[in-house]
Simulated scan of single mutants.
Amino acid sequence: MNGNPSSNEPGKGSMVFVVDDDASMRDALSNLLRSAGIRVETFASTAEFLRLPRPDCTSCLVLDVRLQGNSGLDFQTQLAGSNATIPIIFITGHGDIEMSVKAMKAGAVDFLAKPFREQDLLDAVSAALQADVKRREVERQFSDLHARYQTLTTREKEVMVLAAKGLMNKQIAGQMNLSEITVKIHRGHAMKKMHAKSFADLVRMAQSLGVGQDH
């Protein structure tokens, strides 16, 4: 195999899952990806894939559109319904425009019609793994932000929520029945615990967390 992975590829800990009921295609894809230094697990069906506990690492799914039983497009919908966020690359020998549009609208990274160039598959895998790296980083940042928010006292959370709604210190003080200086102290503590560089930064954090939006 002569294909080469794209530049800026994710680390060696990445994993590509291949689901295709054609054994020769599974072998060909496995050999291609391994030749590019990418770890691969192959499956003959979506049920087989679901039975395997996925490792917590950067990954993507190369999925055949036409599978026996549950189609690839149906499986994409099933994964989305279960909040599974693995990036998907569709491959098919029977692709058409309607299927491709449906897959891409539902979030697929790419849609490749067989026979495809090896480099096209490697490029699609590289893009999918990069997308997963970014998704995981966003989730990690949100998790860290949420963890810091949970260290705030009830008063500090209230100040942060009201600030995110656009209230000034004086207005927050009136609403919470506190002195303005006390509000400033709570705000200062909240900024320190949240690692906010400015008051505007604290407001952006509150908006990212979605706190106060239902109030």
Rank of each mutant, 00 (worst) to 15 (best):
residue 21 D to W: 14
residue 26 R to E: 15
residue 53 P to W: 14
residue 198 S to R: 03
residue 179 S to I: 10
residue 107 G to M: 08
residue 99 M to D: 05
residue 87 P to W: 02
residue 152 L to S: 04
residue 85 T to H: 09
residue 160 M to H: 10
residue 109 V to H: 00
residue 44 A to D: 13
residue 84 A to V: 07
residue 40 V to Q: 10
residue 137 E to H: 05
residue 110 D to H: 05
residue 179 S to L: 12
residue 158 E to K: 10
residue 162 L to A: 09
residue 27 D to Y: 08
residue 100 S to L: 00
residue 160 M to W: 09
residue 6 S to H: 07
residue 86 I to K: 08
residue 91 I to P: 00
residue 65 V to S: 05
residue 7 S to D: 09
residue 209 L to M: 10
residue 194 M to R: 01
residue 15 M to K: 11
residue 52 L to I: 11
residue 175 Q to P: 05
residue 132 D to Y: 10
residue 140 R to Q: 11
residue 95 G to E: 00
residue 94 H to Y: 08
residue 151 T to D: 09
residue 206 A to I: 03
residue 27 D to M: 11
residue 98 E to G: 04
residue 211 V to I: 08
residue 35 S to V: 10
residue 169 N to L: 11
residue 199 F to R: 10
residue 85 T to C: 06
residue 141 Q to L: 11
residue 131 A to T: 09
residue 38 I to Y: 11
residue 3 G to M: 02
residue 15 M to G: 01
residue 70 N to P: 10
residue 37 G to M: 13
residue 41 E to A: 15
residue 7 S to H: 09
residue 50 L to N: 13
residue 144 D to M: 07
residue 68 Q to I: 13
residue 141 Q to F: 09
residue 162 L to M: 14
residue 64 D to S: 15
residue 87 P to K: 02
residue 123 D to M: 07
residue 65 V to W: 15
residue 65 V to N: 13
residue 40 V to G: 06
residue 50 L to P: 01
residue 210 G to D: 01
residue 213 Q to L: 06
residue 178 L to A: 04
residue 90 F to C: 02
residue 36 A to E: 07
residue 137 E to C: 02
residue 147 A to Q: 14
residue 83 N to W: 03
residue 23 A to S: 12
residue 177 N to T: 06
residue 141 Q to E: 12
residue 200 A to G: 12
residue 24 S to C: 13
residue 86 I to Y: 04
residue 9 E to S: 09
residue 171 Q to S: 12
residue 85 T to R: 13
residue 78 Q to T: 06
residue 206 A to H: 03
residue 118 E to A: 05
residue 5 P to S: 01
residue 182 T to W: 01
residue 99 M to F: 03
residue 207 Q to C: 08
residue 29 L to A: 14
residue 178 L to C: 05
residue 17 F to W: 15
residue 166 G to C: 12
residue 154 T to E: 11
residue 116 F to T: 00
residue 12 K to H: 02
residue 54 R to E: 11
residue 34 R to S: 10
residue 2 N to V: 03
residue 163 A to Q: 15
residue 80 A to V: 02
residue 167 L to A: 05
residue 136 R to A: 01
residue 200 A to F: 08
residue 64 D to K: 12
residue 30 S to C: 15
residue 95 G to T: 00
residue 66 R to C: 13
residue 9 E to V: 06
residue 39 R to Y: 12
residue 184 K to G: 06
residue 10 P to H: 01
residue 103 A to F: 05
residue 145 L to W: 02
residue 54 R to I: 10
